[in-house]
Structure formats: structure tokens, C-alpha cells
Design a protein around this nucleic acid. Structure first.
Length: 419
RNA sequence: GGAGAGGUGGCCGAGCUGGUCGAAGGCGCACGCCUGGAAAGCGUGUAGGUGCCAAAAGUGCCUCGAGGGUUCGAAUCCCUCCCUCUCCGCCA
């Protein structure tokens, strides 16, 4: 969420930003609600001030005839307060719901564009392999090698669920282990996080747990949701806290399952593991001082590049354009791996600098040594490894004519042999 | 799941027979004195949010887990919920 004062004072900028992101938000309604809320808040404060004044003046013993009118006035004020407060709350709630729709500001260097077609390729690393045979896609590979059971997944849990089998299980575990080891080397504190989280944490991170286009599974009869990423549980971990400046930056790595309803994306990229309802992921998260977040963002990209370089997967780095940025992201870089089965690049990581957008709602601040007050931290998240997508890239790039699949040495696994 | 105890400022911890409490004391932190320098010691200061004000000063409002209630007045009394701890039960 943006600061309401910024929205008021940088209106033109906010409007332009909303336009650049291809969003439609009724900013005038927000500003009107803000006016109302502020005016009513002033009234409310004045009523309360008088109430406090009255009760303060009645602390000592008093003659009954002096006391009675004060008690009476206090009583009346209480009623007026309740009435004004109700109106204030309504205005405040409206303001808040509109305010939370306003996207973060955007980094000036982020490319202008409507959708993912206009993302900007920054560099390509590694070479897509040349096969002297027709490469298979991961679905054919995995079924041939008995590494996956999509039909079983569909029977038990529905479309877009799957069972990993045999070497794929070891591969998933090895990849998690590998990514975790690298994150430890890079100074991250590692977590295996809850796979569920409270709705208000999801809200704070910027996920919309409700509504028709939600990506989020809700748990009935509770205020819990299945997490869509450990970004939610890692970012939420420090909600409401004030951090000592010298502890920053805080680097957290988290392993979780990720659950996504994928509402509205039926049919698109639907084959195999590319878009599924559940997958495992190792996630990076950072809390930094505002002046350090840009550098941290670059560092997180470089960690991702290290991971995919060591895995020997050809990839490119993409600078996400304004229209393709999520609302909380100030800037976002994706890594896209070469996927021979699709004969194109496919997103395998995504790392966002969300500046103070999430911190404001989650109320995560830090205290500067010797300075008065607190400041909001900057929060960044990035994929270390999303297991389903990484598996696609590994299997498709590693396939050989004899039907075997070569795996990178760093995983410590034997190549997968044909049945 | 059952019984009990508890959730207070950056941290620890008093207050909880309603008003003098945004809150003792300590730690930490900042500044100063002391010192050749440091430690110790001494002194002073130190919660957050938000509004008014150009800003500072000042001042209003809110916040003692969350929400509601009683009252002129609630950290303190009542109710609901959440969380933590101890014991018991159950279980991997």
C-alpha cells in the first residue's frame, strides 16, 4: 500500500503510474474518501478532547451540583462520539479499500509496456542445446521414464495435480538441498515455513485472498489460506515488528509448498508441470534499509544466475515492463530458462523489489541508531528455485538421443537411465 | 481436547482495591561530566502512530495482545477471540 500523503501530494505521478501499468483505479473516489475520513477524524478528535477534558476535571472530590452537569455533558458527548465514529469508520474503510488497490510506484528504468511481450531482454547466458534428434517435452520424457503420474493426480485431487515418482522425487529433493546450500553460503537464514497463513498476512503482502480472480485457496471456516509462495510466510514473519538497524539487511530463505488456483488461466500453458495447482519452491526474502534495496535487488538476481549457471541451464534475464508488474513491485527481473519442449523461454524465477509497499501494511519498521522515530524497511523477494519449472528445464535440456537424461554434477545424482 | 498462569515501551519488568499512568525501576541507546584514553561511576535524555502548524517549538487524538461492553473516566472491572507458558490427555 502507498502512503496516503504521497497519493495526495504526488497525484499526477500516481495517475500516470496507474496508466502505465494498464490499471483502472478510481483515484478521485479515493481522494474524496480521504477528504471525508480526514474531516470526520478531526470532528472525532475534538469530541474526544472535550470528553477527556471533562473526565480529567472530575478527578478530585466535587460538590454534587458541580459534578452533575459534567456527567451529563460527558454522557451526551459519548453518544455523539459513537455517531461520528461510525461515519468515520465507514469513510476510513472505503479509503483503505481503494488505497490498497493503488499500485506501488515504478522504477524509472523499468520498460514501459502493456504486457509480457514488451518485457526487455537484458542478457542471455548459456546456449540452448542443439539436438541431433527431435527433443521431447518434459511430459513425454517424464511419462516415458515413469517420473510422474498426472492421471493419478487428476483422479485424487483434480486437474493440474500430479504425483512425482522415482528419480523425480530424488531430483526434487536434491534441487531443494542444492538451493538451500547456496542460500546458506550467501548468508541467508533458512526456514521451512508454514504452508498456510492468515488472510491479513496475505493482504499485507499484496495478495488478494478473496474475489473472483483470486489465485488463493481459502480454508473454509477459518481465516487461513494456503500460501501461494513462501514470500507470504517470510514477509509476514516480521509483521508489526521494529527491527534494530544493525540487524539489517535480514536475509531469509524459505521452503514451502505453493498452492495456486490458477483461476482464469485454463488452457494457457496448461500442459504438464508448467502451470500447476501445487509445487514446491525455495524462496529468497530480504528486509533492507531503503537506500540498500536496489543493490540487494541486483544481488538477488545474481544469486539466481549463480544457481542456474551451476545447474547448466541456459537462461535469459528479463526486465519486466510496467504493464506486467504486480501491484507491490517497484521493479522486477525474471529469469527465463530455455525449454526445448516448448522451443521458447519460460519463466523460472522472478525477483521483485517491493520497496516499502508491503512494509507499510504489514507495519515492519526499523530503528536507526541514535535517531528519533522509525522508518519502514524495504522488502524484496525472489525465487531461488521453483521445483516444477526447474525440473522442466533440467529434463528437457538434459535429454539425450538414447533416452537418458544427464543431470548436473552439483546435484550429486546419477543420470536418469531409460527403463 | 481438559485444567491453570500469563500477554505492558527496543528488551526485561512494576502497576491491575478504576482518575495523580503513555505508564515506576532496570537494561539498552544518545549526550555530558570524570579519565592520558577506556571501563567503572555520576548526571541528563530516550515509546510508536497520526492530526494542526511552512517548519521547529508547541499542541490534539489513538495505542498497555485484538475486538466489544460498563463508567463522566479503564492498562486496571465484565464479555468474546487470538497467542504464549505449565500440567494432563492424545498422537507422528
Amino acid at each position: 500500500m502507498l502512503d496516503m500523503r504521497d497519493i495526495r501530494e504526488r497525484q499526477d505521478e500516481v495517475r500516470e503510474n496507474i496508466r502505465n501499468r494498464g490499471m483502472e483505479i478510481d483515484l478521485d473516489a479515493l481522494l474524496a474518501a480521504d477528504e471525508d475520513a480526514r474531516r470526520l477524524r478531526g470532528e472525532l478528535d475534538e469530541i474526544r478532547r472535550r470528553r477527556n477534558e471533562i473526565s480529567g476535571s472530575m478527578k478530585g472530590p466535587m460538590k454534587p451540583e458541580e459534578r452533575a452537569p459534567l456527567v451529563e455533558e460527558g454522557r451526551q458527548l459519548k453518544e455523539r462520539e459513537a455517531e461520528v465514529e461510525e461515519r468515520y469508520r465507514a469513510a476510513d474503510e472505503l479509503r483503505r479499500s481503494l488505497q490498497s488497490q493503488v499500485p506501488n510506484f515504478t522504477h524509472p528504468d523499468a520498460p514501459l509496456g502493456r504486457d509480457d511481450m514488451e518485457n526487455k531482454e537484458l542478457r542471455v547466458v548459456g546456449e540452448p542445446p542443439r539436438f541431433d534428434f527431435k527433443p521431447l517435452d518434459h511430459v513425454d520424457l517424464m511419462e516415458r521414464l515413469d517420473l510422474v503420474d498426472f492421471e493419478g493426480g487428476a483422479k485424487v485431487a483434480g486437474q493440474k495435480f500430479y504425483y512425482l515418482k522415482n528419480e523425480a522425487v530424488l531430483l526434487e529433493l536434491a534441487l531443494m538441498q542444492f538451493a538451500s546450500r547456496i542460500l546458506r553460503e550467501e548468508g541467508f537464514t533458512m526456514f521451512i515455513t508454514p504452508d498456510l497463513a492468515r488472510r491479513d498476512i496475505l493482504d499485507g503482502i499484496g495478495f488478494n485472498p478473496r474475489g473472483e480472480s483470486t489465485q488463493i485457496y481459502n480454508i473454509e471456516n477459518s481465516d487461513l489460506c494456503l500460501v501461494a509462495t513462501a514470500e507470504i510466510t517470510l514477509g509476514g514473519l516480521l509483521s508489526g515488528e521494529i527491527i534494530e538497524e544493525e540487524r539489517l539487511p535480514l536475509l531469509y530463505g524459505g521452503i514451502s509448498h505453493c498452492f495456486r488456483t490458477e483461476a482464469g488461466s485454463a488452457g494457457r500453458e496448461s500442459r504438464g508441470l508448467y502451470r500447476v495447482h501445487q509445487f514446491s519452491k525455495v524462496e529468497m526474502f530480504a528486509f533492507t534499509r531503503p537506500e540498500d534495496s536496489a543493490e540487494m535487488h541486483d544481488r538477488m538476481v545474481s544469486i539466481e544466475e549463480r544457481i542456474y549457471t551451476e545447474l547448466g541451464i541456459p537462461y535469459r534475464v528479463v526486465d519486466i515492463c510496467t504493464g506486467d508488474l504486480g501491484a507491490p513491485a517497484y521493479r522486477k527481473f525474471d529469469l527465463e530458462a530455455w525449454m526445448p519442449g516448448r522451443e521458447r523461454w519460460g519463466e523460472i524465477t522472478s525477483t521483485s523489489n517491493c520497496t516499502d509497499y508491503q512494509a507499510r501494511r504489514l507495519d515492519i519498521r526499523y530503528k536507526e541508531k541514535g535517531a528519533k522515530g522509525t522508518r519502514l524497511v524495504h522488502m524484496l523477494n525472489g525465487t531461488a528455485i521453483a521445483l516444477s519449472r526447474a525440473m522442466i528445464a533440467l529434463l528437457e535440456n538434459g535429454q539425450r538421443a538414447d533416452g537418458s537424461i544427464s543431470l548436473p554434477k552439483c546435484l550429486g545424482l546419477a543420470d536418469i537411465q531409460p527403463r
